[in-house]
Design a protein around this nucleic acid. Structure first.
Lengths: 139, 139
DNA sequence: CGGATGTCAGTCTAACTGAGATTT
DNA sequence: CAAATCTCAGTTAGACTGACATCC
């Protein structure tokens, strides 16, 4: 069955459909590796920028502050991140990866790489680059 | 406020970010018009294909059949769609737009058109076409 | 019987809203 | 004082899961 013509050429619809499929693949792989999308976004942001406040973490991973709080607390309970008060600003909590967190991030980086390949399988390398460029303009 | 480099070149991440923004804009406009995304998808699919079973409706709007049930029931309560048993197949329920539903769809079509313009504002017409082509390949 | 349809109750991620306490 | 940070409780849309009765 084909999709409704009214929907089929809507950028918003194609975006949501493509993102839904992408999310499905990513989530599938992530669950198998014992993580969620939020988990990876937080771990990846921490891997890129050492000890960092939760507010900055939210900005670099495009996460709401409240979701950062919740995700970081869970990762802390699994000993994948550590938290400590910022000595120079008592409002902030600095978060960083533990060694187990670094290992987990390495594993998830591999998973993520596989996910990209699977999601982008219908595209040539040039098309994938063009897609990245266009998507970046949209955000 | 820059995003994490690890994330910034992931197709899956850019897709989810672009789709999130797209969804935000669409939802904002839709709420103002008294509808949800599911509402529009159902109404649009009905506008494209007369009386149709809920199963076909789900396929043409890419909706789970349980979500079709729920959405159609709500639209029926608002007198935007009508339902009747399929005389040729007692398992199926045929759904079609009421005149109020057709009016609503016309209004939402205008809204959706504005949403596309807003979401795609950063793109030239050629880029928008290229994006549609690439997204279609992904699904 | 297997397969499709519609319905019920419920889960899950992702994103978000409101409120409050603390600190700069 | 205004602004930023972190936390708590809760909501919403979207997509999905398992189960069931009905009908072809």
């Amino acid at each position: 069955m084909t999709h409704s013509p009214r929907l089929a050429s809507l950028p918003t619809w194609l975006l949501s459909q493509a993102a839904a499929r992408s999310h499905r693949v990513l989530h599938e792989h992530m669950v198998r590796a014992g993580a969620t999308g939020y988990d990876y976004r937080v771990l990846a942001a921490l891997g890129d920028a050492g000890p960092v406040s939760q507010a900055d973490l939210g900005r670099s991973a495009a996460l709401d502050r409240r979701d950062v709080t919740h995700t970081v607390r869970e990762l802390e309970a699994r000993h994948l991140v550590m938290r400590q008060p910022d000595p120079s600003d008592a409002r902030q909590t600095l978060v960083e990866l533990t060694s187990a967190g670094k290992l987990m991030l390495e594993r998830l980086d591999v998973v993520i790489h596989d996910v990209q390949k699977e999601v982008c399988r219908p595209l040539t390398a040039a098309q994938r680059g063009a897609l990245l460029d266009l998507l970046r303009r949209l955000t």
